[in-house]
Design a protein around this nucleic acid. Structure first.
Length: 808
RNA sequence: GCCUGGGUGGUGAAAUGGUAUACACACGACACUUAAAAUGUCGCGCCGAAAGGCAUGCGGGUUCGAUUCCCGCCCCAGGCACCA
């Protein structure tokens, strides 16, 4: 047993005093930028899920230092935003105050884990010296037309009293409070992420990121290729523009559908015979939440515009126009051409309302007749009933048909622009001034930061709290000097976190957000570790900002995070997600107090693969603690004379195999198996001690170096006990001797018909033929021939020899 | 519905074509102890006295040999979704 409290405090103080992990730019040395997703300073502090990714990345950072890399491993706090603000309101204190308090607590927690952070570069997004540059970033985007204000239906959360970005709406609910989101038409600030849709998509190819995250981003961007086609409205100068991915089915378009909110509906009201019915349907649609409207398996409804027809430009037929809420206003043109024969949604709608179904793509061409459909046929085939295109393969006719009616090929993305205005207090003010004479004016860079006033009633009411501060919003116009009004919304906190990785290297620079010199040395980030929940939030926004800054010439790279790894959820002991209401939350402070940070680090990595969801099990922690106790015990019991020469060959080989396996496992992020390998080495050392075989100093030192990224405190302490005066954090990582990995003898496994029948020891390196020589003899020896019938003997002619390890 | 993962002992898991269950946890027996804890030793997939047989979600296939590769299905978790 060792005193974790004593030695962990001791080494944390040592690292701090000696600035062990502070990094300096050194052009002579290869750099590695190892980044953690920075935490929200929530009132509950860290729970055991947070340190999982932090520990993994810390092991990697420590490993890289020992391999001679100049490692930047910074940390900070994502301190603006709803969680911090809601917590403050609940506690009845100012967010500034509670945020500072929470940061102090979390900083202590992180220090208690012994993470090798460079604390001199700590960044807090709610500090003036940080949000100054968030505002600067907004201005750069504004000047390039990438930040704009528009009136649009937006997602509104009644409970949070603010608008939300699309990415913050999870199946129709607010991602934070799970209140159903409603649509509101408001004038808001957007960032033009859509301008980068294609680059955000193709950039994924170059990234070493987990496949599920890449897939999530691809789905979110949602690229579709097709065409815009215009359908004239009969007896009118108006027309309906639709986007379709299936222009080949144009001859089968038997009706059209507009979203009930479509602007043409208003214009057509005069001509329609059932205006009252149409308006009733529009009102009913408006009442529905996004959630109700996109409900699964809901029966489709709609209303035809009486007496109004569109003309199918291919067939020149008049076709009816409907409004239906299965067509959404926000995607593409908010209108579709309906081809019931070849689209399942149009098919079920047409069946319900007895609209004609005309098959134009036939799978069995040239069959005399097409089958009668009982569901839409969405596959490929040959065109029928399609004028001069009949008999062509449908995929080959797409472009020709679109162009024959004046259609234009078009690529449509599902991605929408990022809404960044928030009607809340705790965020960076948007640096814009509205003047009655001069219009929208930017705050000049010299006047930044626009300070967030602290003397404001910040409770949310649906209106921006900053509106209540005359001192804040009454300003003079930067252009004409007359009285003007300052923008009173704040920025989405994801705006703050979309660029923080650029700030760390230049954290102490008061005059620039980031400098050329430091940025070009450290960036891009080499390894980024965090939760998968940011798949289409932070990780998409950060990529967008990087690409935009790159195009403006501020950066010379356009992807911020070269490699990404996700940690999985740590579940409660009941296998459920940890939550206060379930009462299954584990506090890391308690675990560190009882077992120590080293034990916690080992356990959390030993639980299973990093990316998997794993249930917490307090009784299992003892296993990790026992491992460290055992190590301590061996070091305390044995003399550290130079006895490596007398050590057993077995132990020497085991040591070198361990070096190889642990090294491979760290670089591939397989920390659980790295630890089990270290356990086997220690078991081997313990056996040797029991048998009176000396365990040499070299062996012990190597063990400590391998252990140190995982359990740095005890490793430092034992390293010191071997007579070293300085930290092992920069000691060279052990190398293994290839020759010692090769076995003299290998075990061959003899299988007959796939079943293990015998094993034998042979010299390594013998040929297969040689290995097979004693085979018949082995058969006799084991009595297989006598025992089994001829049949077995015959089939035994086909035999296989398996080899454990390698014949070589 | 589509796209990702995944399904192995009592539990967390290991093995990515070659002795399935490494490393741990839990459990059991024993030793030490006045006792308990700690520690140590042994055992621990299932059936069987043993020989042996059977086991990696289910059913097929490829192979001398499949947890691993291929085809079909079931179940679990996550993401996307009237997206035209």
């Amino acid at each position: 047993m060792y005193s974790h409290k004593k030695i962990e405090k001791k080494w944390q103080a040592y690292w701090e005093k000696n600035r062990t992990f502070e990094a300096a730019e050194d052009p002579e040395k290869k750099k590695q930028y190892i980044l953690d997703m920075f935490p929200y300073p929530s009132g509950d502090g860290l729970h055991v899920g947070h340190p999982e990714g932090y520990t993994a990345n810390d092991i990697f950072a420590r490993y890289l230092r020992m391999n001679g890399y100049n490692v930047l491993h910074p940390i900070g706090f994502d301190a603006f935003g709803l969680p911090a603000e809601n917590y403050a309101i609940k506690q009845g204190v100012h967010p500034k105050e509670s945020t500072e308090k929470n940061i102090t607590h979390i900083r202590e927690q992180l220090l208690a884990f012994g993470f090798s952070y460079d604390w001199s570069r700590e960044v807090t997004t709610s500090s003036q010296k940080y949000y100054h540059w968030t505002q600067w970033l907004f201005l750069q985007l504004y000047r390039k037309g990438l930040a704009y204000k528009k009136s649009a239906p937006v997602n509104w959360c009644e409970s949070c009293q603010t608008v939300l970005a699309n990415e913050q709406v999870v199946s129709g609910e607010c991602e934070r409070c799970h209140t159903a989101v409603v649509q509101k038409k408001l004038e808001q600030w957007f960032l033009k992420v859509t301008a980068y849709a294609q680059e955000l998509l193709s950039g994924l190819e170059t990234l070493d990121w987990p496949a599920p995250i890449k897939t999530a981003q691809r789905n979110w961007i949602g690229k579709s290729e097709g065409a815009h086609i215009s359908f004239p409205i009969a007896d009118s100068h108006l027309s309906i523009s639709v986007f379709t991915t299936r222009p080949d089915t144009l001859f089968g378009a038997t009706y059209m559908v507009l979203a009930p909110e479509h602007e043409l509906v208003e214009k057509l009201k005069k001509s329609m015979t059932n205006q009252y019915e149409v308006e009733a349907y529009q009102k009913a649609t408006q009442k529905k939440s996004e959630l109700q409207r996109t409900q699964l398996e809901k029966e489709k409804t709609g209303v035809a515009l009486g007496g109004v027809y569109a003309i199918n430009p291919a067939t020149q037929e008049n076709i009816p126009i409907w409004i239906a809420d299965y067509v959404v206003p926000s995607y593409a043109t908010g209108a579709i051409m309906a081809v019931p024969a070849h689209d399942s949604r149009d098919f079920s709608f047409a069946k319900k309302y007895h609209l004609p179904v005309r098959m134009v793509v036939c799978p069995h061409y040239p069959a005399p007749t097409c089958p009668i459909l009982d569901e839409a046929y969405e596959g490929d085939g040959h065109l029928v009933e399609s004028g001069k295109f009949t008999s062509m393969k449908n995929i080959e006719a797409k472009k020709a048909i679109a162009e024959s009616v004046g259609g234009v090929l078009h690529t449509q993305y599902r991605l929408r622009d990022w809404l960044i205005s928030r009607q809340r207090y705790w965020g960076a003010p948007i640096p814009i001034i509205y003047c009655a004479n001069c219009g929208t004016q930017e705050v000049s860079e010299a006047d930044l930061p626009v300070l967030l006033p602290t003397d404001v009633d910040f409770r949310p009411t649906g209106e921006s709290p900053l509106m209540r501060s005359k001192k804040f919003h009454r300003v003079s116009c930067p252009k004409c000097g007359k009285r003007a009004r300052r923008e009173s919304d704040t920025m989405d906190t994801f705006m703050c976190s979309s660029w923080y990785y650029l700030r760390y290297p230049s954290a102490d620079d008061a005059h620039h957000p980031f400098t050329q010199e430091k940025t070009s040395y450290w960036l891009p980030v080499d390894m980024y570790v965090g939760g998968a929940e940011h798949a289409v939030l932070h990780l998409l926004y950060a990529r967008f900002i990087t690409k935009a800054l790159c195009d403006m010439g501020f950066l010379s790279f356009d992807e911020p995070f070269a490699r990404l790894r996700n940690q999985g959820l740590i579940l409660g002991e009941d296998g459920e997600k940890m939550s206060k209401s379930r009462g299954n939350v584990i506090n890391p402070d308690d675990i560190i107090d009882a077992y120590g940070a080293d034990t916690m680090r080992i356990y959390i990595m030993f639980m299973g693969p990093l990316e998997d969801a794993k249930p917490w099990n307090t009784s299992s922690i003892m296993g990790s603690r026992r491992f460290l106790d055992k190590a301590w015990d061996i070091f305390m019991k044995t003399a550290d004379e130079d006895a490596d020469a007398q050590s057993s060959e077995f132990l020497t080989r085991l040591l070198h195999k361990t070096i190889q396996k642990v090294t491979n496992d760290i670089v591939t992020f397989h920390f659980n198996t790295a630890i089990s390998t270290l356990m086997m080495l220690l078991n081997g050392m313990q056996d040797a001690v029991k048998k009176g075989i000396p365990v040499g100093k070299k062996t012990k030192e190597t063990f400590l170096l391998l252990l140190s990224p995982f359990a740095p405190h005890i490793a430092e302490e034992l390293w010191e006990s071997l007579g070293h005066a300085e930290t092992l954090a920069y000691r060279a990582w052990p190398l293994y001797d290839e020759a010692l990995l090769i076995e003299d003898a290998v075990t061959l496994v003899i299988q007959i018909n796939g079943k293990v029948r015998d094993t034998m020891e042979v010299a390594a390196g013998i040929s297969e033929d040689e290995a097979k020589k004693p085979f018949k003899w082995t058969l006799y020896k084991n009595g297989l021939q006598e025992k089994k019938s001829k049949k077995l003997f015959l089939s035994a002619e086909k035999f296989s020899i398996s080899c454990v390890g390698s014949l070589k």
